[in-house]
Design a protein around this nucleic acid. Structure first.
Length: 479
RNA sequence: GGUUCCGUCGUCUAGUGGUCUAGGACGUCUGGUUCUCAUCCAGAAAAUCGCGGGUUCGACUCCCGCCGGAAUCACCA
């Protein structure tokens, strides 16, 4: 039998790093075992529903390369994949329970329920609705919630990540199946859908672990087979010990895309936060993850989110793509990250620039600042030049003389290549009897007025003879 | 409060009774690569394996207790 997993988010906003792992692991597992993954939208809460959230979810998943086999956009044999369009399914199953006496229509007003709850709180006993079950529930009619009539007892089950589980009757209650508005609760809806859609592995956050006994009771009453349960531990916020949520500033996954993080790095980092294959490998391609992934090596404690490591990994991926797929392949990912002035330059030129700056990028958005002086003349800042720790020892006269020699020497370079430039620079060192620190700093600053730049000969080569000499002359006049 | 889960360097983790004087990675620090920044390379500091008892010739690894943390107890998912 094929393994069927699912990712079932509710469209209440963007997907952030704290909850996207429950899409990654089912995806990896499905791909590895030749099974499939379903995307199901759990939009039964009309109050929290956010317009456009479904598109956001689809976008995030697609960006990460986690394409689903059934669901919105692609359809499938179990359509529809929106719970709001499946109300008749839930009602049909609930009616079965009504008929068999395992569910009842509950006429109790919510104020009354709140009263019961307060009463329990006062007496310091756990509030269980089953202790307040109405004696003669009415015939169900639309507008009334339907509750499960539970049978308190012990339950045991196996959770692939958490191990052997056992609970007593005190955790079982008469949970709501169908709300007064006709929509199912999560507790009931997901069970019906999972069963109808043939889901074999239910992978979700640990927050559902404690309600699993109630689900078990439901599977039993419905005559359904239990799926395999896989509880995924939380990702913890950088500070404190809480699970990472929007309140802790958890950014949306796509926000990282806009900041120049590569999907490869994001997937790599997230997959390895709370899972490892036992080797010392750190960088994994998606295919490698699919191959190596295993449910039983998922960590059972929460893992703290560490953006620094994500950024390190992103740098690794930027270099890896450049080294293995070439400058062009990396360039193709950089469209939105160039400074404004870059637009008037040729693509070839931009690729050249990228080729000499790529190894100092942590994110693609770093390109903007790092490459600025390749596309527009920097403002001459004599303070910066004179304050340089190597140049401040030189008098203005010395500076001017040195600059003239540099210009003369570089003007003489016949063919403007990195090698020839390096030779000219070396000769200049000998002729002027200056240290590289002084000479190179002078040229580097004069040409870029930036805090840092690539190797000097490469920088000059890409800048070109004309621009280089023009900038040097301009500075020479300002000394 | 009830129930359930978790507890190895600052962080992510390796570790399934002896090979652990606890390994790797991020971060930090130092040094090297003709200037800078980064990459890369080399090295360093960093964990009394939450605490206390057992079991055992021997425990990070097994058992018990304690402590600490988390999740959950909605007509939210």
């Amino acid at each position: 039998m094929k393994n069927v997993t699912r990712f079932a988010p509710s469209p209440t906003g963007y997907i952030h790093i704290g909850n996207v792992r429950s899409a990654i692991y089912p995806y990896l597992f499905a791909r590895q075992t030749g099974g499939k993954i379903i995307l199901r939208i759990e939009d039964t809460d009309r109050e929290r529903y956010v317009e456009g959230a479904t598109e956001l979810i689809e976008d995030t998943l697609q960006w990460l390369g986690l394409m689903w086999d059934e669901g919105p956009l692609v359809g499938g044999p179990h359509e529809p994949y929106f719970q709001s369009e499946r109300k008749d399914h839930y009602l049909a199953w609930a009616k079965k329970l009504l008929a068999s006496g395992r569910a009842y229509a509950d006429p109790t007003p919510s104020e009354k329920i709140a009263e019961y709850r307060e009463q329990c709180n006062r007496e310091k006993i756990p509030f269980l609705y089953r202790n307040f079950r109405p004696d003669n529930p009415p015939e169900w009619e639309p507008g009334m919630p339907i509750r499960f009539k539970t049978e308190p007892k012990d339950y045991s089950w196996t959770d692939v990540v958490m191990g052997e589980m056992h609970t007593g009757p005190e955790v079982l209650d008469d949970i709501i199946l169908i709300k007064a508005d006709g929509y199912p609760t999560y507790n009931f809806g997901h069970i019906v859908d999972d069963a109808e859609m043939g889901v074999t592995h239910v992978m979700r956050g640990v927050e559902y672990l404690s309600s699993t006994p109630n689900y078990l009771a439901l599977y039993e009453a419905l005559g359904l087979e239990r799926p395999v349960f896989v509880s995924l531990p939380h990702i913890l916020a950088p500070q404190g010990n809480k699970k990472l949520g929007k309140r802790d500033g958890a950014k949306s996954v796509t926000e990282y895309r806009d900041d120049g993080v590569l999907p490869e790095a994001m997937l790599n980092y997230l997959a390895c936060l709370g899972w490892n294959d036992g080797t010392e490998q750190e960088i994994y391609t998606k295919d490698e993850l699919i191959e190596r992934f295993s449910l039983d090596r998922i960590q059972n404690s929460g893992a703290r989110y560490d953006e620094t490591k994500l950024l390190w990994m992103n740098g690794q991926w930027i270099r890896r793509i450049f080294d293995e797929q070439g400058a062009r392949a990396l360039y193709d990912r950089t469209a939105n990250f160039w400074p404004e002035d870059a637009a008037s330059w040729s693509e070839d030129y931009r690729v050249k620039v990228l080729s000499i700056i790529y190894d100092r990028l942590k994110t693609l958005s770093d390109i903007r600042e790092i490459s600025a002086y390749f596309f527009s003349d920097p403002e001459v800042d004599m303070e910066m030049l004179k304050a340089n720790k190597f140049l401040k020892k030189l008098s203005e006269a010395e500076l001017e003389d040195l600059m003239k020699k540099c210009i003369a020497k570089l003007s003489d370079v016949k063919e403007w290549t990195a090698d020839n430039l390096q030779n000219a620079l070396n000769e200049l060192l000998v002729e002027t009897e200056k240290k590289p620190a002084e000479l190179f700093s002078l040229i580097r600053i004069a040409v870029s007025f930036a805090a840092f730049s690539p190797a000097l000969n490469l920088t000059l080569e890409v800048l070109g003879r004309e621009t280089t000499l023009a900038r040097l002359n301009k500075v020479a006049r300002s000394i």
